[in-house]
């Protein structure tokens, strides 16, 4: 080791801002899409698409079955599950093991950090669950009606909101995965199905309003896919929650506390 000669002076501006930072994105992607993890991430969409091909081959085209498999399983279960995995996985492991210190010890806006990580989580969720749900619907029902398109857009919209919300959970709590699973599997899948009031506080219901608008109200009713909220309310809530959660994650990152070994 030898003494370090002075380096070129960094830019004068105090904090590096902007909506996106490529280096943060690359580090987050590497963490999310490590070799073992990517196999796990591929397992869910692989299972869904294999199921869709099998059903189409055995039972032919049936929109009700498509709604049950691509909508009930793909969008309602796999998308929030992927949301928990990618949303919390984009930041919670770094906070848990302390490696986040290498990001935090930089003159980088915490909002840039949060937005970038949220975008990476959202893209991961869309690629590994939103798009496969639409593809599964297309494989089962074809493109004759708008069912596949509706599930694709609805699933992706839900995935984007989940990415922001679960990223925020990863910042504010060390039990992010647990709370995320409780929300995704208990609140949305169980409470949201039986308690009318809870339905309006459900990301999947907000996204379902988009699906419903694409496939038409009548088709949605016949397939038991109607949303508990209107399209305008659904889109507004999705946008507010996505932007709000991402902004608040950045705010919380500004004051995140790292305890030492002691």
């Amino acid at each position: 080791m030898s003494a370090q000669p002075p380096l070129a002076t960094p830019p004068k501006s105090e904090t590096i801002g902007g909506p996106f930072n490529l280096t943060v994105a690359q580090l987050t992607m590497r963490g999310l899409l490590g070799r073992r993890r990517v196999i796990f991430l591929l397992a869910l969409p692989g299972l869904l698409i294999a199921l869709a091909i099998l059903i189409r081959a055995l039972a032919g085209q049936d929109d009700e079955v498509t709604a049950g498999v691509a909508g009930g399983l793909g969008v309602a279960v796999f998308v929030p599950l992927m949301g928990v995995i990618a949303g919390t996985g984009a930041i919670a492991p770094e906070i848990d093991d302390g490696s986040i210190v290498y990001l935090l010890a930089k003159p980088l806006s915490r909002h840039t950090m949060a937005t970038t990580k949220a975008l990476v989580a959202m893209v991961t969720i869309v690629v590994f669950s939103g798009l496969p749900a639409g593809l599964a619907a297309f494989l089962m029902s074809g493109a004759d009606n708008d069912l596949a398109l509706g599930l694709l857009v609805g699933g992706c919209a839900a995935g984007i909101a989940y990415g922001a919300v679960f990223l925020l959970l990863g910042v504010v709590t060390r039990s992010a995965v647990l709370f995320g699973l409780l929300y995704a599997l208990i609140w949305e899948a169980v409470v949201g199905s039986f308690v009318p009031g809870a339905k309006t506080l459900s990301i999947s219901q907000w996204a379902a309003s988009i699906t419903e608008a694409i496939i038409g109200k009548d088709t949605a009713e016949s397939l038991n896919m109607e949303s508990a909220v209107d399209l305008g309310v659904g889109i507004t809530l999705l946008v507010i929650v996505t932007i709000g959660a991402t902004w608040y994650a950045g705010r919380r990152l500004r004051s995140i506390r790292l305890a030492g070994e002691e």
Binding site: L7, A8, P10, P11, I16, N21, L22, T23, V24, Q26, L27, Y102, L103, K106, P107, L108
Partner: peptide, 14 residues
């Protein structure tokens, strides 16, 4: 990556 996060003009040299 750390050099880039600092916004250094020549991250590779640093």
């Amino acid at each position: 990556a750390n050099a880039k996060l600092h916004g250094l003009p020549d991250a590779a040299a640093a």
